[in-house]
């Protein structure tokens, strides 16, 4: 894959993007500083040369024993130019809050809720920061490496319909 995207990114954000490399499968990869991720993503989405209009997958990794411990991985795809890029954001355990990119891609909503559910990484400015898969009574975050392998928790009662919180509802389209 051409290095057009990554070169433009490093040129535009020399203090936010670092350690760019070509990953497995030829995708462009780069580390981004946590505070600048929304700014970098907005450039990638709206710049006429980039047009990364889709975030097919956002996930997290737990590198237990390393510092910083967590990492949020943004996989971006441009349907216009058929290019992909992978952004990696290091997240320390003490300050596991990342700026949300739901204002750019509505589809990032559930991915960020997934990261919160499974890894306990919070996303600031997220419209509905709840668990995605597990029930609300669940304690802990099961995909963390220090969650016990067979950490079973007691079964819960069925909820009354009036007690089910369904979130703030559909957001306005961007």
């Amino acid at each position: 894959m051409s290095k057009v995207v990554i070169d433009a990114l490093v040129e535009r954000f020399p203090d936010a993007v670092y350690d760019a490399y070509v990953g497995v499968g030829g995708d462009d990869c780069a580390f981004v500083k946590k505070e600048r991720i929304v700014e970098v993503c907005r450039f990638l989405k709206s710049d006429p040369g980039m047009l990364f209009d889709m975030a097919p997958y956002i996930t997290a990794v737990d590198y237990l024993g390393q510092e910083p411990r967590f990492e949020v991985v943004y996989n971006l795809l441009s349907l216009k130019t058929n290019r992909r890029i992978r952004l990696r954001v290091k997240v320390p355990e003490q300050d596991a809050v990342v700026p949300s990119v739901t204002s750019l891609w509505r589809g990032a909503d559930w991915f960020e809720r997934y990261c919160f559910d499974m890894y306990g990484i919070r996303f600031s400015d997220h419209p509905d920061m709840r668990r995605l898969f597990m029930y609300d009574e669940f304690v802990g975050h099961p995909l963390r490496k220090d969650y016990p392998l067979k950490g079973r928790q007691p079964l819960v009662q069925e909820r009354e319909v009036k007690d089910i919180y369904r979130g703030p509802g559909p957001a306005t389209r961007d």
Partner: peptide, 10 residues
Amino acid sequence: NCKQAPILRR
């Protein structure tokens, strides 16, 4: 799964 257990019981 555990989230579905109350539904099965119902």
